[in-house]
Design a protein around this nucleic acid. Structure first.
Length: 720
DNA sequence: ATGTTCCTTCTTTTT
DNA sequence: GAAGGAACAT
């Protein structure tokens, strides 16, 4: 630092230099012209269009550092919104490297969902929620919908509960409540709409009774909270002066509405996005929000980042060509790199999927032999199930690998059981959780008993736990009705357990309690026996072992609790903005945390960090935002990459092409694209062949000079 | 109430 | 080709 300022002094004698924040300069160091422009711009609304690998995250993080260091914006006045937890974590890490650790606790860098959750926890009463409400994960949401459909005598075969549940979520994401939806439905509406309507109405009511919110509800509730409560809204406006949004092309309608509400008249919003990387249209993401942003926010400065810092030119050429086939682009960006030409992109035409897996594995082994680290290699695919052949081959060759996604740890039955027990302790009205575990492991409480209990609950219009209490009081009053007392006797096994658990958790640490809970409920024993029966007890990821990993995860959580929410710090004169109730219950905090922050596999220690030198396997969706020196795009086939569903649904072909583009642009040094002529799926062998995207590509380069790719036929293969 | 067996369905992608 | 659900048997 000393040397630096001396040098500057000699270099150009300007008075400004005397007052300059010496740390500000280092923020701008090494940025190119447009990056520099974006980072050091005055305080204002901005739209940054950033092509793949153009240093988007770097700009975002540097901008935040600049806001703090140069404009002296307090970290607590900054909100950075990301789309995934992975991105949020990465941003926090890079930020703490740049401006120090202390910033983390007061600066909100989180996903939309977790930001909304924080607001809802702080203002639960104003949002019509009871503090301590639980979050419904997808699995619970579907099981609730299914339960309601059965109650309403709707055929769950004709109408799949998961479809109805996702229809409901879709409505919420468009800000449409059950009542408003009903108004749109007419006699002429298709059946599934009518069913959705009927279920939605009841679903909304039951969620309120159970004091639980699903994922889209988190957003919708918050939007309504801000819309209906001026004081809370203005309090947020005063707090969040600078708002930054990553992956803006992925925002859906409710998220956009949230942004408009959370930003005050004097706040500034900076969004970063790439319309070419919009791959979440299927869940409501609307690229149109980028255009809307220009209209809805005043005086927006636009910056385009097109200089690529990731890939060799040949890889970029291929990427540009692929995306060039899309016609509905917001802005035509041609990525330019500065890492030299590089090798040609290799297209591996394989006889079948076994050959494909063997070839890829062999190339990985060869790369490793030539000094490449496994962690710099990744295998990307369209669908999760395509990973199987590669897993087997890598295993056989003793090549270490990590799979991201796939069956999620927190979606496994045994984990969901454990979580359901925790949920019922935190929020006893959570009937969905209770129904999951009242007879798991089995304690002779069958459908008859449950039905009896549910009858009482619906007569008294109360939750199942309360119904049990009523029943208990009734039986103890000596008013002995034979059927009721036998009902109570059957249920009391569970009720005693419930009381005992509640007792236990008062004076134990969270992890010790969780461990004890698994013992008391019998889940440990139950899954241990189940594993043994299925011959899975020796497996590394046996269900019993997973429960152990859950405990490790809780221990890790205890050791490093998430940043303390300081939203109550804002001291204003308004009397109605009640200070948030400190959510002291560690169990509640843990539950919220895992429901929202649970992507990715846990490692053996129950942690989420990934330090091992291993080949990375994941879907192309999951790869967004990441980069690897060597990338294998596999299963680049007809019916797989433009998904089969494109042919007979409104699935967007352009979005599939963007997905291919995302995959291609992950590669830094070398890219391999492979496909099989024959693929066995579900036991059957089916002819497949190259993706139409590959055909387009080859046609484009036909007869041209300097073609950036080459095709290699891999026919037979000597196995093992 | 629970265990067995057969059946179907599912293979996008995520908070 | 697995995993969960329904139908049937115990």
């Amino acid at each position: 630092m000393q040397d630096n300022s001396l040098y500057e002094f000699n270099d150009g004698l300007s008075e400004d230099a005397l007052d300059e924040d010496p740390q500000s300069d280092s923020i701008l160091e090494g940025l190119n012209e447009s990056q520099h422009e974006a980072v050091s711009a005055e305080l204002r609304n901005m739209l940054i269009i950033a092509g793949a690998g153009t240093g988007k995250t770097r700009v975002l993080v540097s901008r935040i550092a600049w806001l703090i260091k140069h404009y002296h914006i307090a970290p607590r006045n900054i909100m950075a919104v990301t789309f995934t937890n992975k991105a949020a974590t990465e941003m926090r890490e890079r930020l703490s490297l740049m401006v120090g650790n202390s910033v983390q606790s007061s600066l909100w860098a989180n996903t939309f969902h977790s930001i909304c959750l924080r607001l809802l926890r702080a203002y639960a009463q104003y949002a019509g929620l009871v503090p301590g409400f639980t979050i419904l994960d997808t699995d619970s949401q579907v099981s609730l919908v299914k339960r309601l459909m059965k109650d309403m005598n709707i055929d769950t075969k004709e109408f799949k509960p998961s479809d109805i549940a996702s229809n409901i979520s879709k409505q919420k994401e468009n800000g449409i409540r059950a009542l408003a939806y009903s108004k749109k439905v007419s006699v002429k509406s298709p059946d599934y709409v009518k069913v959705t309507d009927r279920v939605y109405t009841v679903y909304e009511k039951v969620c309120n009774q159970e004091n639980s919110v699903d994922f889209s509800e988190l957003l919708l509730r918050t939007v309504e909270l801000l819309e209906n409560n001026r004081e809370i809204r203005e309090l947020q406006h005063r707090r969040f002066k600078e708002i930054l949004v990553d992956e803006f092309q992925d925002t859906n309608s409710i998220q956009y509405r949230f942004l408009r509400l959370i930003a005050g008249p004097n706040s500034h919003v900076l969004v970063v996005g790439d319309d070419d990387q919009s791959i979440y249209g299927w869940r409501g993401a609307d690229v149109g929000n980028m255009r809307k942003f220009l209209e809805d926010f005043s005086d927006v400065k636009q910056v385009l980042l097109a200089l690529n810092y990731r890939s060799t030119q040949k890889i970029l050429d291929v990427a540009n060509t692929i995306i060039g086939f899309n016609s509905d682009r917001l802005m035509e960006k041609v990525l330019k790199g500065n890492f030299g030409e590089g090798d040609k992109v290799k297209i591996l035409n394989c006889a079948n999927n076994k050959v494909e897996a063997a070839t890829v594995t062999d190339r990985i082994a060869a790369l490793h032999d030539s000094g490449v680290d496994y962690r710099d290699i990744s295998i990307l695919y369209r669908n999760n199930y395509l990973s199987l052949d590669f897993e087997q081959n890598l295993l056989r060759k003793h090549i270490p690998f990590v799979i991201y996604g796939g069956q999620k740890f927190f979606e496994r039955a045994e984990i969901l059981d454990a979580i359901a027990y925790m949920r019922i302790l935190v929020n006893e009205d959570d009937d969905t959780a209770l129904l999951r575990i009242i007879n798991t492991p089995s304690r002779k409480i069958g459908p008859k008993v449950v039905e009896g209990l549910r009858t009482i609950a619906s007569e008294r219009n109360c939750s199942l736990i309360k119904a049990i209490r009523l029943l208990e009081a009734h039986v103890n009053s000596g008013n002995v009705d034979k059927t009721l007392s036998s009902l109570y006797k059957k249920i009391s096994v569970f009720y005693e357990l419930f009381k005992a658990l509640n007792e236990k958790r008062q004076n134990m640490s969270l992890s010790a309690f969780a461990d004890e809970m698994l013992r008391m409920t019998g889940l440990y024993k139950y899954y241990q026996e189940k594993d043994f029966k299925d011959g899975k007890d020796t497996e590394e990821h046996s269900r019993y072992a997973n429960l152990g990993m859950l405990i490790s995860n809780i221990k890790e959580f205890e050791a490093a609790p998430p940043a303390e929410d300081d939203s109550s710090e804002e001291n204003t004169s308004e009397s109605t903005t009640e200070k948030e109730k400190k959510t002291e219950d560690p169990l509640l905090t843990y539950l919220s945390n895992i429901t929202l922050v649970s992507t990715g596999e846990l490692n053996e220690e129950g942690g989420t960090s990934n330090v091992a030198d291993a080949v990375n396997l994941m879907t192309m969706h999951a790869s967004k935002g990441l980069e690897f020196k060597y990338v294998f795009l596999v299963g680049f086939e007809k019916d797989i990459l433009p998904s089969r569903l494109c042919a007979y649904s409104d699935k967007s072909l352009a979005e599939e092409r963007r997905l291919a583009y995302v995959g291609v642009t992950r590669a830094k040094k070398a890219l391999f694209i492979s496909y099989a002529q024959v693929r066995s799926m579900f036991g059957k062998s089916e002819p497949t062949g190259a993706s139409s995207f590959l055909r387009d590509l080859v046609r484009e380069y036909k007869g041209k000079q300097d073609v950036p790719l080459m095709i290699e036929a891999v026919k037979g293969y000597s196995f093992y």
